[in-house]
Amino acid sequence: MTTTDDALRGTVALATGASGGIGRATALTPAGRGAAVAITARRAERLTEPAARV
């Protein structure tokens, strides 16, 4: 997640369960490579930090 490149620029990803664990990593990885990422979770209040990073 520390590497930033444009490999996924112009693509869109959807990550479910993005408030923690594997879902969070699934959201942040493509975002770090340039994708636009939509995130969802059961606990919306826990999406604040991941949302700021995607």
Rank of each mutant, 00 (worst) to 15 (best):
T29V: 14
M1A: 09
A35T: 05
R53G: 00
D6L: 06
R43S: 06
T48E: 15
P50Q: 13
A18Y: 01
T11V: 11
A13G: 12
D6I: 02
T26L: 08
E45V: 07
L28C: 00
R9W: 00
R46A: 02
L14T: 08
G10T: 11
R24V: 01
L28H: 00
R9D: 05
R43T: 07
G34L: 03
G20L: 02
D6S: 09
G34H: 06
T3F: 14
A41G: 15
D5T: 01
R42I: 03
G17T: 09
R53K: 12
G23A: 08
R46C: 04
T11K: 10
A52H: 07
T4K: 07
P30D: 12
T2N: 10
E49G: 11
A15F: 09
G20H: 05
L14V: 15
A15E: 01
L8R: 09
G21C: 09
G23C: 03
A44C: 07
V12S: 06
A25M: 10
T16A: 11
S19L: 10
A25P: 10
A41I: 06
T3P: 03
R33P: 05
A51I: 06
A41H: 13
A52Q: 15
D5N: 14
V12N: 06
G10H: 13
E49P: 02
G23D: 02
V54P: 00
P50N: 12
L47F: 07
A36G: 10
G20D: 06
A27Y: 02
A36K: 13
D6C: 01
A36D: 15
T29F: 04
R33F: 04
A27R: 03
A15L: 08
R53V: 00
V37D: 00
A7V: 12
T48F: 06
E49F: 01
T2L: 11
A35V: 11
G34K: 03
T40F: 04
A27V: 01
A13H: 12
A51C: 06
G10C: 08
T29S: 13
A35Q: 01
T48Y: 12
A7F: 11
R24W: 04
A51G: 10
G32T: 00
L8S: 04
A27F: 04
A18P: 15
D6E: 11
A41W: 02
R43G: 03
V54I: 05
V54Y: 02
A38N: 13
G20W: 01
E49C: 06
T16M: 06
G21D: 03
G34M: 03
L14Q: 15
P30M: 04
I22R: 10
A35D: 02
P50E: 09
G10P: 14
T29W: 01
R53I: 01
T26D: 04
R9A: 12
G34C: 07
R53P: 01
G32P: 01
A13L: 11
T2P: 00
A13F: 13
A41E: 11
T40D: 11
T2F: 14
A38L: 12
R9Q: 12
P30A: 05
E49D: 13
G10F: 14
S19M: 03
T29C: 04
A18T: 09
P30G: 04
T3R: 15
A38K: 06
R24A: 11
G23Q: 03
